[in-house]
Structures are given as structure tokens and as C-alpha cells.
Design a protein around this nucleic acid. Sequence first.
DNA 1: CGAGGTTCCGTAACGCCGTTACGAAGGTAT
DNA 2: ATACCTTCGTAACGGCGTTACGGAACCTCG
Lengths: 194, 194
Amino acid sequence: MPRPKTHDEALRTRLLDRAGELLSSEGAAALSLRKLAADVGTSTTAVYSLFGGKPALVRALYMEAFRRLGTRLQAVQPTGDPAEDLTRLGIAYRDSALADPHLYGIMFGGHPGFEPDEEATAQARAALEPLLNVIAAGARAGVFPDTTHTMAMGCWGIVHGLVSLELCGNLPPDMDVAATYERALRANTSGWRR
Amino acid sequence: MPRPKTHDEALRTRLLDRAGELLSSEGAAALSLRKLAADVGTSTTAVYSLFGGKPALVRALYMEAFRRLGTRLQAVQPTGDPAEDLTRLGIAYRDSALADPHLYGIMFGGHPGFEPDEEATAQARAALEPLLNVIAAGARAGVFPDTTHTMAMGCWGIVHGLVSLELCGNLPPDMDVAATYERALRANTSGWRR
DNA sequence: CGAGGTTCCGTAACGCCGTTACGAAGGTAT
DNA sequence: ATACCTTCGTAACGGCGTTACGGAACCTCG
């Protein structure tokens, strides 16, 4: 007896996909509920019934962004050399960010109204598990210190920091970023060597 | 014969000060031209005649933020040990960011509509001169490599990255951030040792 | 097969925002 | 005193996120 729902899971994914496209092509400022709904051929109400509002939509994008990052990091095949693996993870991290800078901005840019809750930060941490695994393996092999979490924070810090500086345009335009990035990663890794 | 100006330099600084206060107390989302003008006792027109619009106001805050950061970094007294100086600079950097997180967000968060122009990025680079000086001194002393700019990027990356992660709430709440931060800084520095 | 009822969703309104055009305000020179 | 020129506050415009509401769509039952 009820009217059948058109605000269903399919529409949810279409909204999420289009939101990601808008974000990638025109930036975060251009991501408005009105434009999004019009593009998908529905009304803004859909976003409220399917997500709950704009912050909740951003949250969904946040989760998706970390999911993609985690997938890319998991795809890095271990070589047996923890230091080398660490560098490769860092490069994969940067590739992931450069592949969709605006999505990276969702993860760390801090959108107005959205604060990651516990589940969201758990998703973020889960994406970095390959990093923890490599560092823990290095610790077991005796090349890294036993303070796995401390070292993981340092490594996450440097990859995030460099990528963030690059995306903000804070690096000199004539710099060979890829090479300098890798050099900085290796220096940092060797500093943690036991 | 003209009506005397009330949109003068004094009003400009009052607007800038209040904008900084609003930013610090209520965040970037609460910084609206209407509220700002009302607080200062003028109209939104003042912002347009004195700055040129909201992005230009944000630009002024951006310049001010990097000016303050530069002042704090310059206040770090060299010890003669470049590695130690590097750590102290990193701690001063974090202190500066924690002193006003929202102002730090202006520098790297990327506000909608504002892209730093050449002069703004020059101001940003100038603030980091103490970092370059210490690294160059270390290179002259033979403890750091000759690739000063590469190493500077790495060092900026790790301090910015860790501070950024902390401000985003991406670090575990039970972590002793100050100690871990310093540990990561020292590891990174020692990795650059020649 | 049509009427009723229940659920659902698009429209439209509200209060914000940044931006801009315009008319009133105010001091100066005649 | 009046005319004029600069300056600034008011108000309007389009767009935003959000929400209340009324009509639309379907199933069920007579």
C-alpha cells in the first residue's frame, strides 16, 4: 500500500558517484546539494532521506576516500625488505592523493560541518594497516625499533605532510617532486633504523 | 569637498583583528562578512573597500598567519648544534600551530575562493627561512647533505604533516603527542645525517 | 474496477551567505 | 545657503543548506 521507494540504494550510489565527480572536476566549493540533485535527476530531499544532510554526505565521501586509499596501499606487494616496502607504500600514498586531490582534501582538509566520528576515524586507521604491518615486520626483523606506533605516526606524518604541501602549491614549481619525495622518504626511514 | 573617510587603516586593522578572533573562537565557517562587519560596527562595504572581498580578506589573514609563524621561528636561538636546532624549530612550529589552530588552517586548509598568489607564497617561504638557515649551516658543518632545499622540504613535510594530523584529530587520543612528535623529528633529522 | 488510505517525494519557503548597485549622508567651495 | 563631489550604509540578487507541507503514486479493499 505504500508508494514504492525511489530513494533507494541505487540512487544512493548514483549520488555518491556524482558527488565524487563534482568534487574531482570542480572542487569542493562546487559541491552543492542542489547541483548534485539536479545532475542526478532528483531533488535535494533525496540527500536528506539517504544520507541525512550535507555533512553526512561528506562523511560518506570521507569513508570512500579512505577505502580507496586502503585498497591502493594493500596492492603494494611486500619485497621482504621493510625499508624498501616503506618507500613503496609512501609512493603509493602519493599516487593515490594525486589521482584525486579533492578527495584527498576531504580526508584532511576539514570540511565545514563535518567532523569524523569514531567509525570514520576507525576507517581511516584501517586504511593504514599496511603501514603498520610493514613497520611491525621491520621491528620483528630487528631493523626498526619496537615502538611501532610511534614510528608509524612519523611515517604517516611525512607522507601526508609532503603530499599536502604539494597539493597546496607550497613547493617550488621547478622542483622534481617525485624524486625529492622519494629521497625524503628514504632519509626518514633510515633515521628510524635500529 | 569629499566626505571624510571612515574606511581607513585603523578600521582595516580592527577588521583584521576581529576576523582573527572570530576564526580562533568559532572556526572558519563562522567567519562571515556580515558578522564581522556587525561586530566591528560597520557595514560589509568596508570589507570590499579595504580588502576587495572575502578571498582578499582571507589572503590578509594568510599573510598575517605566516608572519606570526616566521616570528616564532626566528625567536628560536641557535645552539650551534644543527640537529638540535632543527628539533627546536620543529617544536616551535608545532607550538605556533597549536596556539591558533584555525589560523594554521588558513595557511594550509585551502579556503574556498582563495588561492595564494606569488606574493603570498613568497611570504610563506620567507617564514621558513630559519629552517633553511639551520640546514645550510649543518651542510657547511658537514653534518647535513649539500642538498639543502631537498632536505628542507623533507623537514617541512614532517612537521607540517604531524601537526596537520594532530589538528585533524587523526592521532590516537591516548598518545603522548609532544614526546612522539619530538622522537619522530629526531629520527628524521638523523636520517639526513651525512 | 473505482475509491480510500498510506507512504513517499518534489516544491517552495526560511534564513543564511557573498556580492553589487544605488541613493542618502556629509563636508567643502562658491 | 546652495550646489557638488566623495563616501558609505541599505537593500536587493542569486545561491546555499535545511525543513515543512501538500500533492502524487501505489496497494488494498469494497
